[in-house]
Design a binder for these strands. Sequence first.
DNA 1: CTGTTAGCGCCTTCAG
DNA 2: CTGAAGGCGCTAACAG
Lengths: 332, 332
Amino acid sequence: MATIRDVAKEAGLSTGTVSKALSTPEKVSAKNRLKVEAAIKKLKYKPNLLARRFRSSRANTIVVMVPDIANLFFAKLISGIENVAQQAGFNVLLGDTKDTFEREEAFVRMVETRLADGLINLRPSRSCEPLLAREGVLSVTASSCENTPGVSVRIDNAAAAEKAVSYLVKLGHRRIGLVTGLKDNPHTADRQKGYCQALQAAGIEFDPALVIEGDFNFWSGISAAEQFSQLADRPTAVFCMSDEMAIAAIKGFADRGLKVPEDVSVIGFDDMEVARYVTPTLTTIAQPAEKIGERAASLLIEQINGHTPAIREHVLPYEFIIRDSVGPVNRM
Amino acid sequence: MATIRDVAKEAGLSTGTVSKALSTPEKVSAKNRLKVEAAIKKLKYKPNLLARRFRSSRANTIVVMVPDIANLFFAKLISGIENVAQQAGFNVLLGDTKDTFEREEAFVRMVETRLADGLINLRPSRSCEPLLAREGVLSVTASSCENTPGVSVRIDNAAAAEKAVSYLVKLGHRRIGLVTGLKDNPHTADRQKGYCQALQAAGIEFDPALVIEGDFNFWSGISAAEQFSQLADRPTAVFCMSDEMAIAAIKGFADRGLKVPEDVSVIGFDDMEVARYVTPTLTTIAQPAEKIGERAASLLIEQINGHTPAIREHVLPYEFIIRDSVGPVNRM
DNA sequence: CTGTTAGCGCCTTCAG
DNA sequence: CTGAAGGCGCTAACAG
């Protein structure tokens, strides 16, 4: 591997001049610039960026900590992060934590050991809060929830949920089921709050029998639909905290002979690609995943460059997308 | 930031001894080891891994070049890569190329500039072959196709397609439609070969009218179904080269009043999560995505460690998954 | 504009 | 087992 010294020797110049020719060519005479270029080509010189980083003590890298990379929502978010990072000359190091504390810590340590300049956390969780609070670790939490400490980017989960449920109310529904995410997931709390607010605004009493705890995934949606079907006074509409559960619920209802939206309406959350593919197409809430990623990356890079963001909590607009899985109430 | 020198001073030892205490503690006297540990704790010393990498001229990093990160198949593959990389002490740098040559080159350059030790390519394409062939760039192609140069990992696409089509033949189908991927995608060729082989084995003549070019994505599946529906002698079964197109085709047929599998059978390819969610559930071919990723990572790390893999072309087993979207032929 | 020099933090000789 | 010294490749500071 040719080094800058080899190039200098070949060009008959000093390493300092070659270095300058690379970083600020305009400050080197045209003649010498050409000599350097020729030498570089001849020796196939490639600067050792590992050395450069070491010297500048800047990794030019940000770590993205993601609970599960095989999740479309996170994938889009990451895509947004990449857009901005690339632009700013940063590499993106992907950290799939698989939900283990051990791995979360390993990634935080990468920042502490200077392998990365900062970190974007894609999962607000109690467990990693102390990690992110470690001094010298710059971080941004993306897709956060209310009261996330530090700099964060999110949508207003409560308002989004309220909007969805209000829409059901407007169509005449009064028995509205809720399928939540995992109880200890912070998004669950925010969205449930919105659900309750919508009911209250409509003067509908909260009925615990209509709330079923899920885990955001397919089977819990199926199971919720089964439970709802067996209820004497079953709901005419169901709000699910994820598209995956919503799609599963539609299937679950179908298995019990209930048609969506004729017999029961269903709303999801996330607007995953699939939401457009299923029959009926799914009414849902779209999070601007890519935009959230972009904003998070900007905020992190801003911090890396020594600026403290003026606003700590960034709330981006969500979108309520009406498709075919919701209809007016239509009870016997 | 405390350096190893600060620790040495604090402990009243030399940097060399501290260094040894970190890498090979057993070669340092117990007394001094304790001194070092105390100093580290007191100063909150964290080794500068940037410096370590520079010195060892090993980035301990592999780049994964992916055409589109918002694709479940790739996500799973990456997950497999991460498993192995993490284990071996390597970081995974994600490179979403967004299908541009410019970005592909940027990632290859990372290896040349020593920011990464090697590269895993998740998309076999003519365009990047010369890039990967650059000397000094170690690479593995994952999810490759026949005749991919260099070290590669894949399933036998032709055999998988043949298996799927033979299955349709066995159920009495003789007019079997094919929805391909993009013409210049190498997987398309392999899978079409399998389709033709199956027809030939059954003595069915190849009919170009039954082959429609798609692009692996949703809309091309819809459009293919429409075209098939209008055929005077429409196919009784359709093999699609991706699940997404297959699911779309089912929807497209439904829109034309054709039921799956009663009126027409449909098979997909990939076994994406969705395949289990749609109605009817989708018969398809599963690629061992995670395993492919793991194998690719192992092969790359093997090369980084200076060993040349004995086998260059690794073909992993696929799985044919029978669900509800295929039935026996049932023609008027 | 160019050359010289020093040093980033670490590890690995090589003596002692 | 420990200490001293050198150098990885690069850039920045300073002198010419």
